[in-house]
Design a protein around this nucleic acid. Structure first.
Lengths: 202, 202
DNA sequence: CGAGTGACGATTTTCAAATTTCGTCATTTT
DNA sequence: AAAATGACGAAATTTGAAAATCGTCACTCG
């Protein structure tokens, strides 16, 4: 029985956590991260500011959870791509294209989102490190299968994944993407992706 | 005769420009870019602030010229490397290692230098674009020779150069280098360099 | 006549006071 | 007893007036 009760409590908690994050995301996107305070979020949800603190220890923690949720979406898409019934090369291609598309859309869509990203990177959050590790894990899996299939040269999949990820960083790193978007004299995303895939082949 | 006079005038101008840049570099490095004003530079050179403006239209222009000078040094080193009597692969390797070393040293050496870099990137200066173009030119030359020597696959050298440069951006871009220096779970510089070189081979 | 300067208005930056926001806690509500 | 709140001190942010800095210009000096 305690399980049922606990589940109920946890579900209610989760419900509140989600509502707070939804509200925070909406307000951060609209007014910007620094211009939104917890009182604004509380008002939006018709609860008291103090109540927010029953679910998040700080405004920072809200931001952190929001980042995690966005990165999880990115991870989800990457994982889906990695399981398509395609050659390893083609999956890497789509992985990189998908990451680039998502980064561009997230960055360009809203000026306000950029603020959140800068804050996240500055504070050097664990969340981002975790994300990179997981993404490299996906890449390593694809590359491992590509090696097994004779598509790629024999090599350490983990190391290759880190190199592949690093070499397409200009497509995925929000700050760099923002810096390079307007530039002329640059390799196109597709050119760079083909380049990186070629490095894996034998 | 006017030529002789002109040369003399230009030389004197150049002398002053150099002295101002030397002083500015020293002060910027020691006190930081924003903490140094043109009066400080003038005092250091025992001239009036107004006189500085006979050589540079603004403090910004001094910063810009200083950036150009530093990037020219980087270019010079790269050009030297590119002309060594070595295989194309080895020259690319040393090029990338050299650029990384220079970036790390410049960034880590002084906290104050980082401020100058951030300002330069934020203002999105032409100077930096020019530098990237020149550096890609060097890379293209090496790659072209590598293709001719049968060391690399047949491909468009300019395109390959842009891709090579982009894929090792984590080693050369000051902001990213600063972000990744402490990180554990990353490809090492040498791993990444070998990866990028492999992409050029046939 | 060109190199160099002091004085000055316009713009930025600084700094401290006033205000806002953060996060805690005792208390109330359900 | 758990959920929610109002009130409050600590910390951060805004504000605006004072000070510093930027960049110009009429002028002097060699």
């Amino acid at each position: 029985m305690s399980e049922l009760v606990d589940t109920g409590i946890d579900a209610a908690r989760q419900e509140n956590v989600t509502r707070i994050l939804d509200s925070a995301e909406r307000l951060f996107r609209h007014y910007g991260y620094s211009k939104t305070n917890v009182a604004d979020i509380a008002r939006d949800l018709e609860m008291s500011p103090a109540n927010i603190y029953r679910f998040f220890a700080s405004k920072t923690e809200i931001h952190q959870a929001l980042c995690a949720r966005m990165l999880a979406a990115s991870y989800g898409q990457a994982l889906e791509t990695s399981r398509l019934p395609l050659s390893a090369s083609e999956r890497l291609r789509r992985y990189a294209q998908g990451q680039h598309k998502m980064t561009v859309e997230t960055m360009l869509d809203e000026q306000k989102v950029h603020e959140m990203v800068v804050v996240a990177i500055e504070r050097d959050w664990h969340v981002i490190e975790k994300h990179i590790d997981r993404m490299d894990g996906i890449l390593a899996d694809i590359i491992r299968e590509g090696i097994a299939a004779g598509e790629f040269a024999d090599q350490d999949p983990e190391k290759a994944a880190r190199c592949f990820g690093a070499s397409i960083v200009t497509l995925c790193h929000p700050q760099i993407v923002a810096q390079c978007l307007a530039k002329e004299n640059r390799a196109t995303p597709d050119e760079l992706i083909e380049f990186a895939i070629r490095a894996l082949k034998k």
